[in-house]
Design a protein around this nucleic acid. Sequence first.
DNA 1: ATGCAGGGGTATCACGTGTCAATGGGATCT
DNA 2: AGATCCCATTGACACGTGATACCCCTGCAT
Lengths: 332, 332
Amino acid sequence: MTAQTKPNKRPTSFDVAKRAGVSRATVSHVLNGQGSRFPEQTQQKVLKAAAELQYKPSPAGRALVTGRSDILVVLIPNATFGTNLQDLVDSVSAQAARHGLSAVVHFAGRDAAETLAAILYFRPVAVVDIGVLSPEDRETLEATGAVAIPRYRHSREPEGDLNFLVGRAMAEELLRDGPRRLAFAALVDERQDPFGPPRYAGMKAAVRARGLPTPERLDIPLKLAGAKAALEAFAAQGTPMGVGCYNDDVAIAVLAAGRALGLKTPGDLSVVGVDATEVGQLVSPRLTTVLMQDDALMEQIAADLAELHRKEATQQVHDPRPMVRIIQGETT
Amino acid sequence: MTAQTKPNKRPTSFDVAKRAGVSRATVSHVLNGQGSRFPEQTQQKVLKAAAELQYKPSPAGRALVTGRSDILVVLIPNATFGTNLQDLVDSVSAQAARHGLSAVVHFAGRDAAETLAAILYFRPVAVVDIGVLSPEDRETLEATGAVAIPRYRHSREPEGDLNFLVGRAMAEELLRDGPRRLAFAALVDERQDPFGPPRYAGMKAAVRARGLPTPERLDIPLKLAGAKAALEAFAAQGTPMGVGCYNDDVAIAVLAAGRALGLKTPGDLSVVGVDATEVGQLVSPRLTTVLMQDDALMEQIAADLAELHRKEATQQVHDPRPMVRIIQGETT
DNA sequence: ATGCAGGGGTATCACGTGTCAATGGGATCT
DNA sequence: AGATCCCATTGACACGTGATACCCCTGCAT
C-alpha cells in the first residue's frame, strides 16, 4: 500500500471547505457568526458539510490565534465538597457545554499563588469562583482577559453575604429557648476555607445584637479523641451551651464529643450544622441544620454564563434573595 | 507615545532566544531535553535567559504542533467523591505538576459517550481512570494516542480486584458469629457507579463458598423513609440479618432504617460499611467498616505517571498487594 | 463607454511551538 | 594542501484557526 492511506485524522476547516466547494476563509466566517454577509445557500452548504464531517474546531488552533482557550474553570474550595457543590459543578458543566465551552474542575490548593498560576495556565474564558479568590486575585485574573463569575456580588455589606446569614441563623436558633454560652466550631484542616470566617462573623453579630458575650471559636477535628479534647475546655465552663458548626460533619463530631463527655443534647449541649446533609438527617439524634439556597447566586452564574459568548456585559440579576432556612432536628 | 509600548505580553521562545543570543530553534532544543548535543555553556545561557524571563511555553502553540496537550485528565466516578478520592486527586495533581503536566478533574456523567467526548476534547496526554471507562472506551482513548492509567490491571480475575475483596471481607465479617441472611445495600443514584457490582460479586462469592443462599440486593436511598421501606421487606423474612453496604453513608442509612424498624444492632441487624469515613466513626453505634488501601494501585499510577514523559513503557509494579482491612466498630 | 457601489468570496497574515534538513566552520585525516 | 567529517547552530516548515484587507464581478447611474 504505497497509496496515501487516510491517517484517520480529525477533519479540519480545510476539509469542510473542500467538501462545501468554498474557501477556508468562508468556512471560518460562516461558522463564527459573521455569516450574515453570505447568501443563505452558501451558509447551508458550509453548515451541511461541517455537520457531515462532524467538524469540531481544534481547540489548540483556536486558542493559539485568539489567545484564549475554550475552557471554563470551576474553582472549588478544597475544604468541603458536598452534594451541593457537586450539583453546582454539574449545573455549570451542562451550561458550559451548551455554550460551546468545556468546564474544568479545579480544587484550590493551600497556596493561593500556585492556584492562580494553575488557572492562568489554561487562559480560560472565565472562572467560576464562589469565594476562593481574593479581590486582588480576581483583578489579576481579569487583567488577563478572563471573566470572573459571578460578576456581581449582590452586596458588599456583610449582611448580604449568604454565609453571614448562615451564621446569624445558627445563633438565633441556638438562642431560641433563652440565652446560653455559644461557640463556633470550625473545621481543622490544612486546606483553606473561605466560608468559615463569614459564618463565624454572622454568629458574633447576632450574639452582640442581644448583648451576650462573644462566642469563642473551637477547632474541631473529625476524630472522636480530638473533638472531645477540643470541646472539653469549653464544657468545663458550665452548661448549657450551644455550638454552631461549620457544617454537618463537624456537628456530628461535636455531638460525638458531647456524648463522650456525658452531656445531654439538647439539654446541656445544643448543636446546629450547615448544609442539610443526608447523613445529618440519618444520625440519631437527627441534626438541626441550616439549608442554604442561594437562588440569586445560581441565577447570577447562569446569567453570566449565558451572556459570556455574546459580547454584552451581564446585567445584574433582578431579584437577589439569598435564602437560609433552618431544618428542625433533635439537637436544639 | 508613538513609540512601541510593550503590550505586557507573556514572553515567547523568541524573546528567550534573543536574550540568550541564540536562535529560537536552539532554545526549543535545549528546553526539550535534546540539549545534550549542545555544550554546557550554551545550555546555561538558554536556561538562564528562560528563568530570568519566567518563560513558560504556550500550551496552545505546543498543543498545536504536537497534536497533544499538556493535560492529564483525572476521571472521577460521579457517585462517590469522598476523602480518599480527594486524596487521590491531590496526589495525582502534585505528581502531574512535577512532570510539567496540568491535571484536570472530570466527573463522569451519566452518558458514557458524552464523557468520553469531553475527555477527547482536551487531547490529553493521559487519563487516570480508576474504573469508569469500559474496555472499549479505553481502547478508543488509546487509539487517539492518550495513555490510559493505570496501564496494567494486576489481575484480570475477579479475585484480584480490590472491590471484589471488599465484598468478600464484608461477607466474612458479617458471618463471623455464625450464619445469617445477608444482603448487599446498593446506592440509589442516577449517576453511574462502577464499584457496586464487584463488591456485590465479592459478597456473593464468599457466601456461596459457605453454601449459604445468595444475598439479595437492596437499593437504599439516603432518606429515612425510603431506606426504611427498602429494608422492611428484607426484615420481614425474619432476623438475624447482615447487610454489607456500598459505603459508610449507605450503612448509616441502613442503621437509621433498622432503628426505625425497632431492630437491635448488632443483634438483629448487623451492618458493615466501606471507606472508614470519619463520620462513620463518629456516629453511635460506631460503624464497622472496610478500609481499602490500594498501595499497588497508587504505586502503579505513580509509576505510570513517572514514565510518562520518558518514552519508556511502564514496567508492571513489582509487588501488587491490594489491602483490605476491617475496622471493628459496634455494628457487627 | 466609463465610473461607481457593493455584494460575494478569498488570499494572506499572525498566533507560538517542535523538529527536520541544511549550513558553516573548525579539526582531523590523507 | 585538499578532502572529509563532525559538531554547533539555524532557517524554514507545519500545525489549524480567526480576522483583516483585498479582489472580482455585476448592476446601475453618469
